[in-house]
Design a protein around this nucleic acid. Sequence first.
DNA 1: ATGAAAGCGCTAACAC
DNA 2: GTGTTAGCGCTTTCAT
Lengths: 344, 344
Amino acid sequence: MNDTTKRPLTLRDVSEASGVSEMTVSRVLRNRGDVSDATRKRVLAAAKELGYVPNQIAGSLASQRVNLVAVIIPSLGNMVFPEVLNGINQVFDATPLQPVVGVTDYLPEKEERVLYEMLSWRPSGVIMAGLEHSDAARAMMKNAGIPVVEIMDTDGRAVDSMVGISHRRAGMEMAKAILKQGYEHIGFLGTKMPLDHRARKRFEGLTEGLGKAGVEIEARDFYEGGSALAKGREMTQTMLEKNPDLDFLYFSNDMIGAGGLLYLLDQGIDVPGQIGLAGFNGVELLQGLPRQLATMDACRLDIGRQAAQIIIDRNVDGADQAPVHTTLTPTISFGDTLRRDRRV
Amino acid sequence: MNDTTKRPLTLRDVSEASGVSEMTVSRVLRNRGDVSDATRKRVLAAAKELGYVPNQIAGSLASQRVNLVAVIIPSLGNMVFPEVLNGINQVFDATPLQPVVGVTDYLPEKEERVLYEMLSWRPSGVIMAGLEHSDAARAMMKNAGIPVVEIMDTDGRAVDSMVGISHRRAGMEMAKAILKQGYEHIGFLGTKMPLDHRARKRFEGLTEGLGKAGVEIEARDFYEGGSALAKGREMTQTMLEKNPDLDFLYFSNDMIGAGGLLYLLDQGIDVPGQIGLAGFNGVELLQGLPRQLATMDACRLDIGRQAAQIIIDRNVDGADQAPVHTTLTPTISFGDTLRRDRRV
DNA sequence: ATGAAAGCGCTAACAC
DNA sequence: GTGTTAGCGCTTTCAT
């Protein structure tokens, strides 16, 4: 166990300690090319003995290859994104590629900064949440000369590849399901729009889906900050007091939906008889509530997996393949808060 | 907007486009040294026009400085860690330092691999969750020649600096509070131990605190995997069926505690009169439940902040200062599930 | 205020 | 199977 020396160890140190050329040491450490078993052992022993850790900065500069993949997402607090990351990790675990996560807090300027920072490490790919970006960000991704996958959402134009679901479609499907069950007076509760394009698209999809049947959203409310569960409670109360005729509430995420559900149960209101509810995401976290909230799976794990796979493929095949555009189909789960059987 | 060229742009390209030497271009781009306003503008214009993104790999190799800080945590799904990351981000946002997150899934071997990977990028510091590590990992941190801060937990020996709370102490404080309120038949529900040292320490602290008063834990159960809320429900039901005399349940985290709470409310059991409950963490997420679960704040944001600050300080002062060891004091919140007033 | 030369620690390419 | 040479794209240092 070397110590005292402040200077980090280099290949040369291992070379000298083992009496083998730097080049051969390098080969051993990377399992490249033929090295005799004897020297291999000597090198490995010396490296371990010294506690040598290779310098990837130098290595990457020399080889012009970086095993990093930039993953840029709006938030870690959202539950959605950690699961996407799990999918990405699962796939990259079998490869030398390493995801590096950057967080934008839903701010376009921060997204731009984070992207710039990450590109300056010359990663082997970019996985970016969403399709809405500043012109500068889009230009950077276009000119980076590496595979780019935009994830989560497919309602829009991608710079390169994309994998996700149509949130507009998701909203429309939910509209269909709601109408089919005979609900007619619908309220929407969500996050403040400008920050979250996917929630906005679900809202638009819902509006459109209802509109085709001549139904209009009768009330809407948007929150910002705070505990989603508590906000769901408050907003639901407020909305129902103002609009006692509502018979269905669509929430832009499961957490506020759960808050709404808890409020209605407290009030002894019949769910889904008197009022139906639905959220979005299929958050596993919420299994265990008194009733299961109707929701729609966002295919998070799968999105992560496929995005990672695209990065891998394009690093192999060369980047001049046609971009991959994949739209997954979320499944609706009725839970206990959306009637299943009523005929129209 | 340059395109078509697959080769990434270099300083030289900007130099040629602006008719200024590479060196001066470099100075402009980093705001270093004196550059006349005229040339600065020309360079900036050329760089923007071309869409040049500096190569930090080359830059870091040359300058022997890397603005990356390795942050190694067990999981992103845990709610606890994203908030620590927020604290870290808040502090680093005012500096050129960039956190890079690695996830270990609570596996020592993976922790070792992740650490090795990150050290090979020669970061300016390491922030590592927990005090329990493999010998190899500890050796790497010791020999890396950079500031290391172990976070979350202070019950043990740190490689260098540490910031956290005493989970053993937290368990003992909870024991005191429980006894003071007159509860005497206590059950513990937690995660499988070997994976989570901090939960284990809280359990040991609780046991010890109760033991001093001659009280023993009468039932315990540990879960693995699945939705914590649902598990909390099931485990609570099972435990109370087997041990109907219990009058207090201590949960190793707020999510299973919330599951237990929901179950008890369903059953119409008087909380905290007949049975008291407490969890751990102070998860904001849960505000909005019918009752507020008693819990203990783990000082997550503060831990992240202070850890980041230590890394900054040590990168300035030189690393030969004495290590910082900070133990924060978590505050207990009684919520609605732990009696406040009953005398012993 | 600007430029020229050297070199950071490693690997690609080519000898042997 | 192993060693030698050159150079990755920057920054440091020193000269002007």
